[in-house]
């Protein structure tokens, strides 16, 4: 067979197709960025220059970091056509457990911080594992199993904390929650501090994105979300992959629990039980991940979280009262998803 003759143009066309896709991708990113900048400048004028202040931008990034980290875990779950409703309450459960653990230890400093984080991650991972068990063993819908976990985790965290926040006795955590990353350096350079949670977010988005797009595990996540039976018959260990995505989601919740606990210097059963879970899911969906599974990205989730965070911020700067904020937010989420779907249909036609 004339392999070489066919191979050559094939590779060329593969390159072409890839560069076409890459170009489409960057066009989208640049388009989104240009749009963002224009909107931001307009808003900035209305907000009398407060919106584009560096301090405000950093503030928005800090505010979205918690939901964005939860969104990273959630993205994995949703690409497998699942959902994890328990993440918000796992934030409170891990926070309470970590606070109790830290207060019971007789050592301090960095070892305490690391050990406490490890406990939070372990609790989150365990809860994720329990979430996945009925899903992979009995084929139950994750909506129900994680809903049950949500209630159980909330109940547990109230019970073991007796309904009250547990103040941290050690001062070792203070820097992590509200401190700045390499604060000495940023101050020496006379730029605004970068809060630690922002760095956590950046690292987790980067690691999550590589895991999803560049590894065998990530490939299997997409495959089983796209066609579970085909993936299984191709030898993919569907149970293991599904279990792992819920574990990842739980771990992300544990990290957020840790960051909130450090921020408030206490583990509270109320943290994370508000709209956090829904906003994290909203960030994932606004970011272009399909609830039907098989399609999505973590970078998209970051931008989804950013959009939601900016909206809140703008409305605060413009003194929109909080009830109206919710209405606007809901409308914008709907609009974003409708626009994305319209764009996809348009692209599919041309």
């Amino acid at each position: 067979m004339a392999d070489e003759q066919i191979q050559e143009p094939l590779e060329a066309s593969a390159r072409q197709e890839r560069s076409k896709r890459l170009r489409a991708y960057w066009l989208r990113v640049i388009g989104a960025l240009v749009g963002l900048v224009v909107v931001a400048v307009v808003i900035n004028v209305f907000a009398k220059g407060t919106f584009l202040a560096w301090g405000n931008i950093v503030q928005v990034l800090r505010q979205i970091s918690y939901n964005c980290i939860m969104g990273v875990g959630q993205t994995f779950v949703i690409i497998t056509a699942g959902i994890d409703l328990s993440i918000g309450s796992l934030v409170s459960l891990t926070g309470v457990v970590m606070a109790l653990f830290a207060n019971a230890m007789h050592f301090g400093g960095l070892p305490l911080v690391v050990a406490t984080l490890a406990v939070g991650i372990a609790v989150g991972a365990l809860a994720g594992y329990v979430n996945a068990l009925p899903v992979v063993r009995l084929n139950l819908p994750p909506f129900i199993t994680t809903l049950a976990m949500m209630m159980i985790a909330v109940g547990l965290s109230y019970k073991i904390s007796h309904g009250r926040p547990i103040p941290l006795q050690s001062g070792a955590f203070q820097g992590i929650g509200i401190g700045a990353f390499l604060g000495g350096l940023t101050r020496a350079m006379h730029v605004h501090d970068i809060p630690n949670p922002v760095i956590w977010m950046i690292v987790i988005v980067a690691v999550g994105s590589i895991l999803l797009t560049k590894t065998r595990f990530g490939r299997y996540v997409f495959a089983l979300g796209g066609n579970e039976e085909a993936a299984r018959l191709a030898g993919v260990n569907v149970r293991r992959i599904k279990t792992l995505v819920y574990v990842i989601s739980g771990v992300c919740a544990g990290i957020v629990g840790f960051l909130y606990m450090a921020l408030f210097s206490s583990g509270s059963p109320q943290t994370g039980t508000g709209d956090e879970m829904l906003e994290a899911i909203a960030a994932v969906v606004v970011g272009g991940t399909s609830l039907m599974g098989g399609r999505g990205s973590i970078v998209g989730t970051f931008f989804g979280a950013l959009l939601i965070g900016m909206l809140y911020n703008v409305m605060n700067l413009l003194n929109v009262e909080s009830y109206t904020q919710k209405i606007v937010l809901g409308a914008v989420i709907l609009l974003a998803v409708v626009l994305d779907e319209t764009r996809k249909r348009y692209l599919a036609k041309t």
């Binding site: 065998r216 490939r219 997409f222 495959a223 039976e229 085909a230 191709a234 098989g294």
Partner: peptide, 29 residues
């Protein structure tokens, strides 16, 4: 329903059952 993941590319479908053979030492595909 059983042989293909329709939303994935030709490349991703062909290598699906043997992705492991394409994983380098950096653990990336």
């Amino acid at each position: 329903s059983q042989g293909l993941v329709l939303g994935m590319t030709v490349r991703e479908n062909i290598t699906l059952a043997h992705v492991g053979e394409f994983v380098g030492r950096d653990l990336l595909v």
